[in-house]
Design a protein around this nucleic acid. Sequence first.
DNA 1: GCGTGGCGGGAAAGCGCTTTCCAGCGCTCC
DNA 2: GGAGCGCTGGAAAGCGCTTTCCCGCCACGC
Lengths: 338, 338
Amino acid sequence: MSARQVTLAEVAKQAGVSLATASRVLNGSTRQVSEELSDRVLRTAERLGYVPNASAQALARNSSSLVGLVVHDITDPYFSCIAAGVTRVAEEAGLVVVLGTTGRRPEREVELLSTLRAHRARAVVLAGSRTTDRASQSRLAAEIDAFTEQGGRVACVSQAKLGTDTVVPGNRAGGRALARALTELGHKKFAVLGGPSELVVARDRLAGFKAGLADAGIAPPAVVNGAFTRDGGYAAAMELLASKTRATCVFAVTDVMAMGAMAALRERGVRVPEDMSIAGFDDIPTLRDTVPALSTVRLPLEEMGEIAAGLVLDAGGDEVRTVRVAGEVVLRASTAHN
Amino acid sequence: MSARQVTLAEVAKQAGVSLATASRVLNGSTRQVSEELSDRVLRTAERLGYVPNASAQALARNSSSLVGLVVHDITDPYFSCIAAGVTRVAEEAGLVVVLGTTGRRPEREVELLSTLRAHRARAVVLAGSRTTDRASQSRLAAEIDAFTEQGGRVACVSQAKLGTDTVVPGNRAGGRALARALTELGHKKFAVLGGPSELVVARDRLAGFKAGLADAGIAPPAVVNGAFTRDGGYAAAMELLASKTRATCVFAVTDVMAMGAMAALRERGVRVPEDMSIAGFDDIPTLRDTVPALSTVRLPLEEMGEIAAGLVLDAGGDEVRTVRVAGEVVLRASTAHN
DNA sequence: GCGTGGCGGGAAAGCGCTTTCCAGCGCTCC
DNA sequence: GGAGCGCTGGAAAGCGCTTTCCCGCCACGC
């Protein structure tokens, strides 16, 4: 075990050239090397199974090939789709993505960023949703500053205002459009399963939805808050049912929550959509196989990941870039006329 | 931008101690340092916001804090669950996981392993399923050798015989137990939606299932192969239906395929379970919200990821370790008496 | 009194690369 | 014909850390 690793020096020696030449041949530089030497180096590298030591390269070049990706929970389809987009772009660029999961703890986000900074990651995509909590916000901002200070780039998905490049889904507009579509189905009484009130994503979607209802001259919805998870949706729906709501249509601010809510409704014998219409937000792939198919606001999740990775990988100017992606209302079987 | 990064040397100078002392204080060594100096170093490091350069550490120590994780497709719940388990354990151990996705291309797996070797990752978890294709097998084996040669550890999930530590689900036993359970429901005529024939996981599950049918003295099932994905399941089910099968029960070797198959059945107006029973394998979390709830063989996916990470992280002896995890048949609404 | 050994501190030698700088060589251009 | 230039190759100086080795100091034992 642990046979001496093959180093550039070894390759150089066996090929009978200098270290410099070997380096130039194997790791592309602007400098030309005669075909003969070049060949010799290439061949011996091949023969010895040489693989450059990435740490050494990173040290010497002062830049690594690592791209960070921070998500709350990789099993959540919302995040895994974004992750797929990010990894695709990163891998195409010859970079390696390091995955960090926060378990929805803001301090973990800060820790991860610091670790990524230690690794001199060249960029980071923050996919977790933003909190309005002041303390964690400012610590995060400080870490982001430290990170960019060091020459790293940061992009966020769905959380503007952090002074970084951002991919912003049309949360408010999507909520509003959805509300409008649902009122057009004839619903008059709505309820919303909102996420934790300190999450801006949840708040924006809710705000948009309320605005949409107002547009149609409809009374504001009852709002029940719950965790941003399937179980949170389940619990919130249970609470809603317990409150003897008279709503005929429920909007869950997240598909994942909607899935939980549908389970709750099913369990309580509330038929969807006959007794209750329900809609979500995101259009996670799982929705394809839900029965009844869930109405939602479609977001191009993988593409959002790709865009974020793109933003963070090409240097760009100094100004903060924001890419908006629109949500598209998709009405399916879970919402019926009323 | 790009304010000089804080180095150990800087901290040492400002604290008025030597580089060696600063290193000893900040990155734990066996050597003692007087409390006074130690304090001074700690304080200045804090003040300057010092973060050790991980590349430099890796280079000097000849060992990095990277753990590789190779999956086919991170959006597949099977893989994202395993990924969750792996990251949890790795993060607890203070390590960083780098995520590689192969898109089911064997050569990508080899590439990724090589990249991970370049980064001197201390360990890798290979979660992709194994192929019987000779060529790619041997190239993969060669890369694995090179990797372990360098002192890295490798563990596989669900693919024994590669000479590495392995977490092996009871694919065969699970298939067999499922077959038995289904025959007990009175079904006599079965069909199987098999994965690509070169995937050993698919073959094992199928073989077990056949064995189970044989146990019950039932004729071998019709087998339709398809890709190991939701769409593969959909296509295979369509093909099965087109063949005018007389089976009353279908086994899809993967939950994901089963989801696709259910969609196909639904589309064709075949009621589940009245007209056709269906069962899958894995028990991915999504199943909770499927209607009707899918019968399956439950595998502790996250736990499997944790186990794999555990195997790969504690040195262990030289012998190859294999941890078997049993599948548990879970009958739900998608399978009915016949 | 002096040798011994243990202990805390620093100097310096790497770790495996990249890149600058210099040397040598064959040309072109006055 | 010599100055100047462009080009290729090599020596060597880092990159930011860890760790070995050595040194001076003190407590101790004979």
